[in-house]
Each structure stands twice: as structure tokens, then as C-alpha cells.
Amino acid sequence: MTPLTFRRDEPAARTSGLLAVVKHGRYVIGENPVTGFAFALFVVIVFAAVFGPYVVPYDPLASDTAAALKGPSAAHWFGTDQLGRDVFSRVVVATRLDFVIALASVALVFAMGGLAGVAAGFFGGWTDRIVGRLADTIMAFPLFVLAMGIVAALGNTVQNIVIATAIVNFPLYARIARSEANIRRDAGFVMAARLSGNGEFRILLAHILPNIMPIMIVQMSLTMGYAILNAAGLSFIGLGVRPPTAEWGIMVAEGAAFMVSGEWWIAFFPGLALMVAVFCFNLLGDGLRDIVDPQRRT
């Protein structure tokens, strides 16, 4: 007899629970069209990340010196850069790289920080002290500066950008997970679970973790934006992704020199894409928070 087989016993309750969430979600979106808008934007971003390279009008790497530094036009919606590459194609194609970097680093930090934090909050004692000390030490650095140091030390690769972004976010996840686990550590339902004969690990995994998941998912959505900004910032100062790869941070860096001479579109459109993506994740995170926890609206 395992709990799994038991759960199958009550599909009605499961679906009704899921239905209620969907219903509530629809209500929140109806009440707050901004969240609906953010969700639509999210779909567009995912579409560009998946299908971008197949739908863009130009090869993002093909230069055409004859058409260099042209402003936005019907042929080149976002204009062309100093090498005559189509800015629109490059912006769309870059979505995948930025999105994947952010997603990978958030998934990594969720696995590391989330679990470490939950264990620290629930077990307390030495686990708590070690995780807390680690988080404090990372927090003692300005985060972007630490990310710079890590990438510089580990080597200038995309993979290391993912690792650096994850490390830098570790304290945030560890702390949230820790405090959420900590307030539930002595909750009645946890004590009741002990009385029912659940071991400590079982309580952690079956009782505490599922209750913390919604909050962690909201946090993931909120930090997606930060992860994108972090990665773009690193490549803006020449770390990680290297030219001629299409990536928003690099494209802004390449266009920066032309800003003072009036060719604004080279830096503007990738910067705008970056902003819209981050904006979307922030709105989505706020919206998700409303769905998960209506009391925490600000």
C-alpha cells in the first residue's frame, strides 16, 4: 500500500482542485488584465525562442556592407547594424539564447537553493548554520560583481554565466525556502504527521515541500527577469557570449557606440526586447503571486 495508489482513489478531488485553480486563475486574469497581457507576451517570447531561427527574414549572421547602418524600413524593420546585418532577425533569434540561459540558471538555483533552504528551515541546527553561512557569504558581495568575478575565474563561457547567475541567486532561494519551511516546522499538521508515523524525511518531502512549491514557483518567475538582466549585463561588459553571436546584451553593447552619432536603432531594439522580456516575467510573477496567495497583493 503506497500513498500513490491511494491517491488514485480520489480523482474527483484532484480535478476539482485543479479546476478551482484554473477557475481562480481565470478570475484573476479577468480582474487584472495586465496579467493576461503578460501571459500573452510570455507565449510570444516562448514562440520566438522555439521557432525564431526558422521564421526570421534574414540570416542573423550574414553581413551586407552595402546595407550597413540603415534605419528602420519596410525591408529591415529594426534597421541594420554596422555590418549590414538585419537587427530584427538578430533580436528574434537572440531570444532563444537569453531565454535558455535564464531558464537553466533558474532551474539550477531552484534545485540547489530551494532544497538547501527547505532542509535548513526544517532540520535547523547544523544544516541551518551551514546553509545560512554560505548564503551570508554570497550575500556579502554585491551580486553582479560576484557574478563578474565568477565568470572571470571560471572562464568566459555561456555555461559559466548560467552557473554564476545561479550562485548569485542562491541566497534568495535558500532564504525564502528556509523561512517558509521554518514557519511550517512546528505547524499542527506537521506534528500530526509525526503522530501518524511519518519519518522526518517523509514529512519534508510529502508534507512541507508541496506546501512551499507555489511560493517557489512565483519566485522562479520573478527571478527569471533578473537572470535575463544579469546575463545580458555580463555580456554587455564582454563576458560570456561573444560576437558575432546574436544576444541582446552584446547587441546593445555593439550599438552603444552608435548612440552618440544618432544610429539609435542598433542598441534600441535589442534593449527594448530585453526590457519587454524582463517586464513580462515580472508581471507574470506578480500575477502568479495573486493566484497563489491573494493576501500578499501589494
Binding site: 500500500m1 491511494f6 478531488a13 505547524a187 499538521f189 500530526a192 501518524s196 508541496p210 506546501n211
Partner: peptide, 21 residues
């Protein structure tokens, strides 16, 4: 309120000790 796991149905909560012990 505090003594029931918010993610467990009433049946699951009652069954928990039976399943474990």
C-alpha cells in the same frame, strides 16, 4: 486549521496514520 495539511483532502488526512502505521 493549522493541524490539517492544506494540500491534503480530508480523506487523505484521515488515512495518513493508517497508511503509515
Amino acid at each position: 486549521t493549522d493541524s490539517l495539511n492544506p494540500r491534503f483532502t480530508a480523506a487523505r488526512a484521515i488515512a495518513d496514520p493508517i497508511l503509515r502505521l
